[in-house]
Amino acid sequence: MRSFSGRTAVVTGAGSGIGRALAHELARRGAKVAASDVDVAGLEATVTAITELGGTARGWSLNVTEAHAVEAHAAEVVATFGSADLVINNAGVALAARAVEQTTKEVTKVVDVDLLGVVHGTQAFLPYLLASGDGHLVNISSLFGLVAMPYNSAYNAAKFGVRGYTESIAIELAAARAPVGVTCVHPGGVATAIAQNAERPAHNDGLATAFEQALRMPPHRAATIILRGVQRGRRRQLVGADAWALHVGQTLLGARWMDVMGVLGRQVVPRHAA
């Protein structure tokens, strides 16, 4: 997909952060944007900003954990814009907590949004991407979908799942010579509100603070890198120097990565609290 002009681009989690930046950048490049989020106020702000600049966008309130709702959304997007050419499954939440204290409810929410939300979006839109004749699927994983990090076991599980799911689909489509590109995106520290909005026990503020301090890249810069990866047909797109550095470090260290992370993890949480 060399150009986004005139294409219909679907972006979940478009009410803030990377999703909002992607929606804005796609509209700036001439795409018709179907934006969705559970945050209605944030979504309205995204759509309003696009339309005020002369772009084309419509917003949908959508909970990606509800498969039937996502299926209905896909049909409505195509009925509204005539096609679905680029689908970016971006909606996500985080959980910064030690495994021993996180609750099943919190873990389930992270997996439902971050992994099953991607599955629902992919299943609902893939037939339309195939029908477009030149579609592209983008699933947002994370740096934490490439390397394991302490105090993020649920988030790691979901994002590793997104990676495996997306790469499997990429292989299937390539084997079938289907006219759909697939990109799995692994952002490093992007300056979004994901840490503040994380699902976590209230007394884990120290973990959230450490997480927030790593979020530095402006979302618009991340969006530009992601869309460049789509245009170049990259199956895997890392975003940020930190993502590349940690990915290379983990690859070189192998199983010793866990020892190194254990040492660094003790700097965040004292031994007696781990």
Rank of each mutant, 00 (worst) to 15 (best):
M1S: 13
S3F: 01
S3H: 02
V10N: 08
T12E: 05
S16R: 10
G17R: 00
I18F: 03
G19I: 13
R20T: 05
A21N: 01
A27I: 01
A27H: 12
V33R: 04
A35P: 11
S36P: 15
A49M: 04
A49V: 01
T51Q: 15
E52F: 04
E52C: 00
L53H: 14
L53D: 15
L53E: 14
G54Q: 10
G55Q: 09
G55P: 07
T56C: 09
V64S: 07
V64E: 13
A72C: 00
V77N: 00
V87W: 04
I88K: 05
I88C: 07
A96F: 14
A99D: 08
V100L: 12
V100F: 02
E101N: 02
T104W: 09
T104Y: 07
T104S: 08
K105P: 02
T108R: 14
T108D: 14
V110C: 06
V110E: 10
V110F: 01
V113Y: 15
G117K: 07
V118F: 11
G121M: 04
Q123E: 11
Y128Q: 09
L130E: 11
A131E: 10
A131R: 00
A131H: 00
S132G: 02
G135M: 08
V138Y: 15
N139R: 11
S141V: 14
G145V: 05
A148E: 11
A148T: 15
M149K: 09
Y151I: 08
Y151Q: 13
S153G: 06
N156P: 04
N156T: 02
N156W: 01
N156R: 01
E167F: 03
L173V: 10
A174N: 06
A174W: 13
A175N: 14
A176W: 13
P179K: 02
G181P: 12
G181F: 09
G181C: 06
G188Q: 11
V190L: 12
T192D: 14
A195L: 03
A195N: 06
A198S: 13
R200Y: 03
P201Q: 06
N204D: 10
N204Y: 07
D205L: 01
T209A: 01
Q213E: 08
Q213Y: 00
A214M: 14
A214C: 12
P219N: 07
I225S: 11
R228G: 03
R228L: 00
R235K: 14
L238I: 14
L238M: 15
V239F: 10
A241I: 09
A243W: 09
A245C: 11
L246V: 13
L246S: 11
T251Q: 15
T251A: 13
L253R: 12
R256E: 08
D259G: 07
L264G: 14
L264F: 12
V268C: 08
V269F: 05
H272Y: 07
